[in-house]
């Protein structure tokens, strides 16, 4: 293996890890970053997306002929978006709308919700982890050169995350709903005085962020087994990305995931996975001591 292919492989691994992190954090960048809701149940909303994929996979395996099995994942993505989005909508309508501007109460309440969701999944699917099988078209590898093989799954994740990001930008900056979302996050009262139905916009925005969590959960179900505790594994990463990048800006989440992803892969290449993670955490903490509001500081909605 030449050093060039090694370097390219490293870059690709880093990029692929970045896009996973970004996908995890994208929904949180909306609900926490734009809306200021410290949503501890974000990981569980992802878990719902994973279980949605699991349920659909089982349905396809049981009810349909084998040649259609590969298609289940194409349907699992929108299903996961809808399931998590509706769960988020319900959460916003019933609980979070009463807690805007009170981050500590939101934190406690959503933590409670996360416990409820975990137990609910335990009741329905059992405490053991379940597996979601990759469809055939995501299992191959692309041989670029000797020593450089790019798994289809990882290429797919990079493409999917990019698409999500592009659509998010288009929605926020090119549509009337996006303009309303940005207006409400900047100045709720003035938006209302201009006829923006702020409560509806809140609900849609939160549902959108939750739906993105569903996407992330659906994709992550292909990378490891799914269990009631799955959500817990991702929540720290998600918050770390958003906080490092700077709360309130989509560009912050991109920068955050890029920095964390690349350094993590770099550190892992000359130490162990655990040590790599420890070093990344330490660096993030040190960086935040130096710049507490992250890479892209913004003064969108105060969080104090």
């Amino acid at each position: 293996m030449t050093s060039t292919t090694f370097l390219l492989g490293q870059l690709f691994n880093g990029l692929s890890y970045c896009s996973i992190l970004l996908l995890i954090a994208l929904g949180l960048a909306i609900t926490f970053g734009l809306m200021g809701v410290i949503n501890m149940a974000h990981g569980e909303l992802m878990m719902l997306g994973s279980y949605a994929a699991y349920v659909l996979q089982n349905y396809f395996a049981k009810q349909l002929a084998a040649q259609y099995f590969g298609w289940y994942f194409v349907l699992a993505l929108p299903l996961a978006f809808v399931v998590s989005g509706l769960a988020g909508l319900l959460l916003e309508r019933s609980l979070i709308r009463r807690l805007y501007g009170r981050p500590l109460e939101t934190l406690l309440a959503t933590w409670g919700v996360s416990l409820i969701l975990q137990q609910l999944m335990r009741q329905i699917f059992g405490a053991n982890n379940v597996d979601v099988r990759s469809p055939g078209w995501l299992m191959g590898r692309w041989h670029v050169a000797a020593g450089l093989e790019l798994p289809h799954l990882r290429l797919f994740i990079i493409a999917f995350t990019s698409t999500c990001l592009f659509l998010m930008y288009a929605l926020l900056f090119r549509t009337a709903l996006g303009l309303r979302i940005r207006a409400v996050t900047q100045n709720r009262d003035m938006s209302a005085c201009l006829g923006v139905p702020t409560r509806k916009v809140d609900a849609y925005t939160f549902a959108l962020g939750s739906g993105l969590a569903g996407f992330a959960g659906c994709i992550l179900s292909l990378m490891g087994s799914v269990g009631p505790n799955s959500g817990q594994n991702y929540i720290v990463d998600a918050f770390m990305v958003v906080v490092l990048g700077g709360v309130g800006k989509l560009a912050g989440a991109i920068a955050g995931s890029f920095v964390i992803g690349q350094t993590n892969v770099l550190f892992e290449s000359f130490s162990t996975a655990t040590m790599g993670k420890v070093m990344v955490f330490t660096l993030v903490i040190l960086f935040l001591q130096w710049k507490p509001s992250g890479v892209f500081p913004s003064k969108v909605r105060s969080l104090d």
Partner: peptide
């Protein structure tokens, strides 16, 4: 005045129009 500071002048005006 409560102008939206990070929105452009045009976007501020469009918000009035949406109403």
């Amino acid at each position: 005045r409560e102008i939206f500071p990070t929105l452009t002048v045009q976007e501020n005006l469009v918000l009035g129009l949406l109403a």
